[in-house]
């Protein structure tokens, strides 16, 4: 299964997915073009979530805080200090790294149900903080980043990220980088240790692996990936608000990953894309989209716990990463 042949197939598959997404930029109608750009950014959150939940087996209910860390890290520095795009994006990544390191050091002392509740509570604290500092964040109303802050200067030449095609390409660039990074991580020694921890932590510890350090790395990697999506969301779509830190944005990545297939590299994207269109299509019939999310969650855990790509891998394509 791990032969050179399947490595080549895996690599080609991911390149092909990125290639198709690149080609879609030129043929998609305007509406779906915009949707896909958004879905690519959101599925980066799901990929970050998948690192922790799918591979390391740690179910967090607080990933909205990492997304929000990136969102506010980039948004606040760009809005209040007028930082240029690369600096603001880096600020988002740094705040995600710092937050996830702190949360990881604390929350990883717990396991199982306690881990879920602790992460949920830390995320709730972060959500409330965005209201407490509403002088800076404007709470629910949020901040809107103007067009002039969303330009990427390269010498005298600049890229305008409010332009749909540029925005799509920026989203695709982030998506591709993160996809290849996750592919690399899950095929590395560290990735295998994470899977071993998920399957049997005691045994992994007994084999001499430092499980705490491995899990901590996973939390930070997962947090930074989610923060990169948050920072990109702020800069690409120009809106920074408290609702992105709410518990709903912790649940949605879980739903996307479950739907697409936990512990598959492409599952998060498939899940996010599928769910986005399900909500989009049903919302033309009913406003009750939370109902769909709820029913989907229950049906998934009841009948389809491996998700779309997880099932495909189990039944047909064994080499799917």
């Amino acid at each position: 299964m791990r032969g050179g042949n399947s490595s080549a197939k895996v690599f080609l598959l991911h390149i092909a997915v990125i290639g198709i997404l690149f080609a879609l930029n030129f043929i998609l109608p305007e509406y779906h073009h915009g949707v896909l750009a958004r879905v690519m950014v959101l599925s980066v959150v799901a990929m970050g979530y998948n690192m922790l939940f799918g591979y390391a087996g740690l179910l967090s209910l607080g990933h909205a805080m990492f997304f929000a860390a990136g969102l506010y890290g980039a948004g606040l520095t760009a809005y209040h200090f007028g930082w240029a795009m690369p600096a603001a994006f880096a600020a988002g990544l740094v705040s995600g790294a710092v937050l996830s390191l702190a949360i990881g050091l604390l929350a990883l002392r717990t396991t199982g149900v306690a881990f879920m509740i602790v992460t949920m509570m830390f995320a709730q604290v972060c959500y409330l903080l965005t209201f407490y500092f509403s002088e800076w964040t404007r709470g629910d109303d949020g901040l809107v980043l103007g067009q002039e802050t969303r330009r990427l200067f390269i010498g005298d030449f600049y890229l305008d990220l409010t332009h749909p095609a540029t925005r799509y390409m920026a989203a695709l660039a982030l998506f591709s980088v993160v996809l290849l990074i996750t592919l690399f991580i899950v095929r590395s020694a560290h990735g295998r240790v994470l899977v071993a921890i998920r399957e049997n932590e005691e045994r992994t510890k007994m084999l001499g692996y430092d499980t705490f350090a491995n899990k901590l790395v996973a939390v930070v990697v997962s947090g930074v990936i989610c923060a990169s999506a948050g920072a990109a969301y702020a800069l690409l779509f120009g809106y920074v608000g408290s609702s992105f830190a709410s518990v709903q944005y912790s649940i949605l990545p879980l739903l996307w990953v479950l739907l697409g297939g936990a512990a598959t590299t492409l599952g998060p994207f498939v899940g996010a894309l599928f769910m986005y269109y399900v909500v989009d299509i049903t919302s033309s019939y009913t406003s009750a989209y939370l109902l769909i999310v709820g029913v989907a969650l229950i049906l998934l855990v009841l009948y389809f716990p491996k998700g779309i790509l997880g099932t495909i891998r189990e039944r047909w394509i064994r080499w799917l990463p």
């Binding site: 149900v113 999310v293 709820g294």
Partner: peptide
């Protein structure tokens, strides 16, 4: 199952 039931009760919450 503790983890599956949390996800399922989140679903109930939304419904």
């Amino acid at each position: 199952n503790p983890e599956a039931t949390i996800v399922a009760t989140i679903g109930m919450l939304y419904i």
